[in-house]
Design a binder for these strands. Sequence first.
DNA 1: ATCTTATTGATAATGATTATCGTTATCTAT
DNA 2: ATAGATAACGATAATCATTATCAATAAGAT
Lengths: 178, 178
Amino acid sequence: MRPGPADLRRRMGGRCRRWTAPREAVLGFLSRRPGHVSVKDIYGSLSGACPGIGMTTIYRTLGLLERTGVIQRITLGDGQARYEFKPADRKSHHHHLICLGCGKIIDYSDFVQEELDLVRKTEEALARRHGFLILDHNIEFLGFCGTCRARSAGDLPRPVPAGVRSARKRPGNQKERS
Amino acid sequence: MRPGPADLRRRMGGRCRRWTAPREAVLGFLSRRPGHVSVKDIYGSLSGACPGIGMTTIYRTLGLLERTGVIQRITLGDGQARYEFKPADRKSHHHHLICLGCGKIIDYSDFVQEELDLVRKTEEALARRHGFLILDHNIEFLGFCGTCRARSAGDLPRPVPAGVRSARKRPGNQKERS
DNA sequence: ATCTTATTGATAATGATTATCGTTATCTAT
DNA sequence: ATAGATAACGATAATCATTATCAATAAGAT
């Protein structure tokens, strides 16, 4: 079942001094909404749960949630960070499949077992060889989805690369920053 | 041996109409310098090879090189894109090990074989299941390097998360558009 | 109910990346 | 070599995601 307010707060452990309406609203929204959410998505969706919430507060709260480990930050290179709620159970581990044509993101969770084997082995070796403590990992596949494959069959030298960054073509731009 | 001007240009195939001094300078610099280079690194290093080159040109050239597949763009989330030359040979395939404390990046190329097995299997399944054409993949491990482990032994609730994003604490910020 | 101070939010500042647009220089054809 | 068409350059202004400030507000402790 979906986590309630008390559960959400509990997940913060002693990592914050005060639990406020904006924090409840942001975390609640993320926990309830699957997928990769941008800051503007959040801002635009909180008029009900927390009217008058400011962008600054959202950014600050996201930073808090991220370092607490309750949410994950994802940077695709389109100049805008995305956030994703991390369910408490380990089962929901997944990775991303990104279309370079339209920017669509697909989550997949196949081969989790094989992946974990590889990852565990790699982690041990990296720890031994470089003195690193591994906490997390990301795997992403880049390519073209069915629709984009059909549309752009073999015209590589197009003016704009087409890529996750295609979003940049519009108005201003990011910064991407990563 | 290191690729010469003619080699560099050849690698562009028919993907650009004219070969110019700025392009030669940017690609030459990247091909010669290992690691993850920022736009400012490039700008600051080209006073010799191409005096007077403008930021705009650098950005445009990087975009061209990226969609041609000669270089790879890396976004770590610190608001600044990095670029890396892709050697022609397949041997140099590697991934990144990122320290959340100081942002240091270590390249590693262990377990390439196991990784390739996993990747191939995953690619086939994803292609079948989602109609995707996979072109590339990225794997990165996040954690703390030896130095940072020692320094911050167990004081998680620190004001600033410490993370790749630590760079953001300084002056302005990204936008990490990546 | 009162007090301390963590949080908030309006506003200005930052800085990476793009859009413009007149100028320059690469290639092609002569 | 030379001339012409136009791809590419570069100075400058514009965008926009993210941060820094700072006075006002409100959680949580006493």
